[in-house]
Design a protein around this nucleic acid. Structure first.
Lengths: 207, 207, 207, 207
DNA sequence: CATGAATGAGGATTCATTCAT
DNA sequence: GATGAATGAATCCTCATTCAT
């Protein structure tokens, strides 16, 4: 009744993957609450419902966890920005997502986490590289979306204009993230008004 | 050859002030390099060329140093933003200040420090309050500048538009700060081009 | 060969208890030798044969250790005083216990520790409260013993006289404790003679 | 107009003495409030209205101050006990002095200080010796007072009885001191009642 | 696999003592 | 004499990491 080797292996791998996910979820929660440094391995372990020692079977050390979280958060963020293109009303979409309470799962990029990551990037070259990769991807994606033909859902801007506006767009979004972390109570109506005008300007044809 | 009491007192005060400045400069350097938490008092003391114990004669504890640095950085930032209004060409001014090398002195707002501060603000209410105060001041300053009459060096925008645009402006600047910390090598020409268009849009009369 | 859950739990609890005892014994020894403040956690850890960090798994901080020791010493003292009632010859019992060498174990109330505790009580309200509780218990116990009927092993004194004499009795005992700490070489014969007369007077019917 | 050498010297000595007194008074106050260890030299200096450095011109180190204070306190206590003999009503005199608030000056032996001293004596042989000397003096003084002829203000007890009762007396007083430190709110009426009976018994002719 | 007890290197902070002025 | 800035060792405590079970 024993399973063949391959099945066993894949079962084991699945479990390994599940454990890693469990740890990362716990770590994310702790990091959001206390920051990378203040969150202790003991707390993360407790949050994950396992022993501190076990974590080291799945991650070499705390830094590896931080890195893995960052990697995953960047994927999530990338996806989210991808979805924006499709959304009917970009400005209100962004505005609405502002200050969304962490829904516990990892499908939302926490402003606090984003700050923590960025701050850490100024010291850790690996993190810096990851963020740079992320930034480049997002920027070119937004740029391509602005330059794409109108009939393909784009805005038909010349390439150079698209690139410049994409930069503004990306900085604006990141600035909002920072603000969100700091001032989650910001007036949403004002924000939406401001954003809709800004977005309109960003996608309008150049003079 | 003895000095009168007043002279002595002011000498002592001058020394005290000088020491505080020395400590803050060292702390700033350490914080930029390692972050608020990873920078140890021992390292700060060494950087300042003094013993760890001496620091506590001038600051109650590490947190007080962090707070003092933040307060000072926000002043600097406030001043800088104030100067922007006066500058001939806003966009290129901002672009030029981007990525300026930390001149070690405290007259430039380090992007890294800004991130560190913002991240810390999500945990420390005192820091959060300081940042909020700062944010409010800057926002209203920018708004008043946008709404002021053209003949007074403003842009004559209606109050509500000015408020909304000021928000965008401030977020954009902060987003740039974040980017600066992460990617100081960003293409300056592109940045200037992007900013000049964005700034032009922000100060243009509403439709 | 694996143990069931219950066995495991009780084993763990037993170990925890054993470690606490080990720490308390070491701490007691250190406190007797150097006092609460001068005894360092490092020394206690070394005495207990463990690392400093480990102590904090079993006690929240140094103060908790001090408190635990005090609590335990007071229990011991309470028991001892309880036993006195039963003893054939009270005076010689007290005299004999005077200056007993610390048997390292916790079954003897060290005079030094008693002093340390009392001195600390003038500053730490928690310790003061514990000592006050202790004092009240002992006082009322002695009083009830003096007032109880002769046929129940008491001395049949009126309540108010019993209360007053109990106070004297308790102060006398405590005074002896102090003397013991300071002058363990006191002439035992003299002490016994003095005590037997004093005890006789304390239990004699009032005029 | 200059004073001769001798006058100068004695003037200097007087000043030295005055400074020492000032320091000791300050130290006493600090020790009563915080204990020997917790009272810092800085606080003592501040209380004495001088700089920390200056203290070291008059005392070799903190320990020397402690020792000097103890020496002085013991003198005071010796005097006080001497005065007791003369007092009309011994019991009420003791009772009344119980819990007297430190009158700031050094003419009252603080219970807290007494405890601190006794605790310290278990470690520091010099302090132990001082206390032992003190104890012996007081004991023999009390004994001689009990054995002295009635017409000389004594109680005419035989020498050996006087010695034994003096021991009880001294322990009782010390026990009261301890209690005072711990429980300054003790019922005075009860105390006086208890003491008057006890004192009466101690001075009564032996059976 | 899993546990969690154990380690020990730091970290912030205090304070007796010294010494240049 | 007097100051008080400066030192640096020592203290309590935390936490990433290891390893026997």
């Amino acid at each position: 009744m024993s399973m063949d080797q391959e099945t066993l292996t894949s079962k084991a791998e699945a479990r390994t993957q599940a454990q890693r996910v469990r740890i990362l979820a716990a770590a994310r929660a702790c990091f959001v609450k206390s920051g990378f440094h203040a969150a202790s391995m003991a707390t993360i372990a407790e949050t994950a419902g396992m022993s501190p020692g076990l974590i080291y079977r799945y991650f070499e050390n705390k830094n590896a966890i931080i890195l893995a979280i960052i990697e995953r958060q960047l994927e999530v963020a990338r996806d989210r920005i991808g979805q924006m293109h499709a959304s009917e009303n970009l400005a209100s979409g962004i505005a609405r997502s502002f200050g969304e309470r962490e829904r516990c799962a990892e499908n939302s990029m926490s402003g606090a986490l984003f700050l923590e990551m960025s701050a850490e990037a100024t010291r850790d070259p690996q993190i810096a590289a990851a963020l740079r990769r992320f930034g480049a991807t997002v920027h070119s994606e937004v740029a391509s979306w602005l330059s794409r033909d109108r009939k393909d859902g784009g805005y038909g801007l010349p390439d150079d204009v698209a690139k410049a506006r994409a930069l503004i767009f990306v900085c604006l979004i990141e600035g909002l993230k920072v603000r969100e972390a700091r001032e989650p109570t910001l007036d949403k109506a004002l924000l939406e008004k401001a954003l809709s005008e800004a977005v309109a300007a960003l996608v309008s044809p150049p003079k």
